[in-house]
Amino acid sequence: MAFYSHMLRNMRQILFRDEDQHAIPSMDGPLSPNNYLDAFTPVFDDLTDVDDVVAGPDGLYVASGHDVVLVGKDGSRATIARFEAPCGALALHPDYRVLACVAGRGLAAVRADGEVIWLTGAGGVALTCLTAVAVAPDGAIVVANGSIRHPAADWLWDLMEKNASGQIVVCNPGLGDARIVFDRLAWPHGVAFSHDGASLWFTESWAHRVSRAPWSPDGPGAREIVIGNLPGYPARLSATAEGGFWLALFALRTHLVELVLTEDGFRKEMMATIAPELWIAPQYASGRSYLEPLQGGGMRKLGILKPWAPPRSYGFIGHIDGHGEFDRSLQSRVGGQNHGVVSVVESDGDLLIVPKARGQVLGGQRQGGESRQ
């Protein structure tokens, strides 16, 4: 089978010479490696297992484990909702409801009085793998369903199986009339509206791209790819007042992982015989076991892991303008700790990030990563 796989790949390269081969782009210019994310520090010491944070008029809403916690501007704490499963992506609706993605269940809309209504399916598909949620200017709600094959916690299986079964779903403010507007997506991981509300932007992690579609009261129009070949796996994105977006990459691509994805026989045997945390695959965090796979450049010398080693895990957020061009980035390199960033938002002029390697909300300044051109 390996022989035929190589033969088919070579034939495609000969017959379709202009086809995008998805070579990993270099990290230069505004993407040049830096250590700015390493200066970010925990905002709350007691909130752990965090998956998302959003800024509201009355404070910060944090998805921490099974809870949605409101941290008021005066430092007060209130548990807005507690679910039977881990809580993921969050959004605030203009009518003051808190929207929370709950693992294995769907989207919960929590009113101020504590009442909860649910969106659990659309078009005959159960929404058990919600990865992101956003609210349109007209109050409509958009969610990303990463996969119909795996829950969000099993994202690594979805990548290694090379699935593309995700959807973007739109519903009305009351969570009714849910419909799938885009499907067969490669793990959609982030959705956001542009600052002017004229377009819907979303990411696909396994396709390493960002797309957008014009938005109207009838829903999104035809989508177009804005960034087609990112150096990593994109997660969530959030709009900025300047008209652009902050975009998180939860890991960087490597040539070794790209090779494994082309070798079906090797990959299937690896998945069947080795624990997932030891696969040749991206991770939220690394360096926790001596059994982890290594490339030559990732060998420790005198106990030091070189920052330019092939990244098994990495920390990255970047700012893109309205055309999808990067103008700055903040990073935590191979030897850093703030890896696996899945969410980034602005709050009072600073940045808040959620790195899965730490499981906490971290805060820091946004100015450090501005490009010098």
Rank of each mutant, 00 (worst) to 15 (best):
A2I: 13
F3W: 03
F3A: 06
S5D: 07
R9N: 09
M11R: 07
M11I: 12
R12L: 06
E19K: 14
Q21I: 05
Q21R: 15
H22T: 08
A23W: 07
I24D: 03
P25N: 05
D28Q: 12
G29S: 06
G29R: 03
L31Y: 04
N34Q: 10
L37V: 04
L47Q: 08
L47S: 07
T48E: 12
V53Y: 05
V54K: 06
A55P: 00
P57A: 12
G59S: 03
G59F: 01
V62E: 06
S64Q: 04
V68G: 00
G72N: 08
I80N: 03
F83P: 01
C87V: 15
G88N: 13
Y96M: 11
R97M: 07
L99H: 05
V102Q: 03
G106R: 04
D113Q: 09
E115H: 14
T120P: 10
A122R: 14
L127S: 11
L127P: 01
T128F: 11
T128Q: 14
C129G: 10
C129N: 15
L130P: 14
L130K: 13
T131Q: 15
V133K: 13
V133T: 07
V135M: 09
I141Q: 09
V142S: 06
V142N: 05
A144N: 12
I148F: 01
R149P: 00
R149L: 12
A152Q: 13
A152D: 12
W155D: 06
D158Y: 03
L159W: 13
E161A: 09
K162F: 04
N163H: 10
Q167C: 14
L175K: 09
A178C: 13
R179G: 13
F182Y: 13
L185D: 03
L185H: 01
A186P: 06
S194F: 05
D196T: 02
A198L: 05
S205I: 10
H208R: 15
V210E: 01
P217W: 08
I225E: 13
I225M: 09
V226L: 10
S238Q: 10
E242K: 08
G244L: 01
F245K: 00
W246C: 00
A248G: 05
H255W: 03
L256E: 12
L256W: 11
V260R: 15
L261K: 15
E263A: 12
F266R: 09
R267I: 02
M270W: 05
A272C: 02
I274E: 12
A275I: 11
W279P: 09
I280L: 15
A285M: 08
A285S: 14
Y290A: 14
L291W: 02
L291K: 09
L291N: 12
P293R: 03
Q295T: 11
G296C: 04
G296F: 06
G297K: 11
M299Q: 11
I304V: 13
I304C: 04
K306F: 08
A309V: 11
P311H: 14
R312D: 08
R312G: 08
G318F: 00
G318T: 01
G322P: 00
R328M: 01
L330K: 01
L330I: 03
V334D: 07
G335H: 14
N338H: 10
V341S: 02
V341L: 07
V345W: 01
V345Y: 02
V345K: 05
E346A: 11
D348G: 04
G349A: 09
D350W: 07
A357E: 06
G364W: 03
G364A: 02
R366W: 11
G368D: 06
G368W: 06
S371A: 12
Q373W: 09
